[in-house]
Amino acid sequence: MAAAILCFMWALTVAFGLANLHYSQATSFRNVIIVGISLFLGLSIPAYFQQFHSETSLILPSYFVPYAAASDGPVHTGSPQLDFAINALMSLNMVVTLLIAFVLDNTVPGNRQERGVYIWSRAEDMAADPSLQAEYSLPRKVSLCFSRARCFGA
């Protein structure tokens, strides 16, 4: 049961992430490079951090490895809490991939179409395009309930 819920949550996270990409240009060399570097480093950096887990006789499940690596990781700042937090976060694939993709997307030059932000550039464009209104509006039955409710001022 727990595995099914975990699979569903991962699928939902991936679906939401990919749904946001449909506004950007997938064939742009800039975007292909950003996704490739993010995925490569998102797998490589946590593998490096996870090799520092303590040598115990316990056999840990794979989802506990980042937390075991956090206590003996390569980052040593002098503050045990900060060391644990940085080593734990850098041992997680999703966190590293998110950080690298965020930094690259905001630092590598590209036009608004490549970045996918042109769609949110002007509110009047969004109000004029009926397909966007359909995508971002409430379901019909829910909007009818809200329109009938006087406490919402609709």
Rank of each mutant, 00 (worst) to 15 (best):
A70F: 04
Q113D: 10
L99D: 10
D125K: 00
Q133D: 15
Q133W: 11
N111K: 08
S131P: 04
M94S: 06
L92Y: 02
S79Y: 07
A88K: 09
T107S: 12
I100W: 07
P74T: 15
A68N: 13
V75E: 02
Y67S: 07
S79R: 13
I119A: 00
S137C: 15
L92F: 11
L82T: 11
D72K: 14
L132G: 05
Q113S: 06
S137V: 13
S71E: 07
E114V: 02
L99S: 08
N111H: 05
P109I: 05
M126K: 00
M94E: 09
I86D: 06
N111C: 07
V103N: 15
V108P: 12
L138V: 11
A127T: 01
V95F: 02
N106R: 15
Y118F: 04
V95W: 01
M90K: 06
E135C: 13
L92A: 03
L98I: 15
P74Y: 06
P66N: 03
R112H: 14
F102A: 03
G110Y: 02
L104Y: 11
A69Q: 15
M94T: 10
Q81V: 08
V75I: 05
G116Y: 01
V117W: 01
D83G: 10
V75L: 03
I86F: 14
T77K: 04
E114P: 11
P80C: 04
N87P: 06
A69D: 04
D125I: 01
Y136P: 01
A69W: 07
L104D: 06
W120Q: 00
T107I: 03
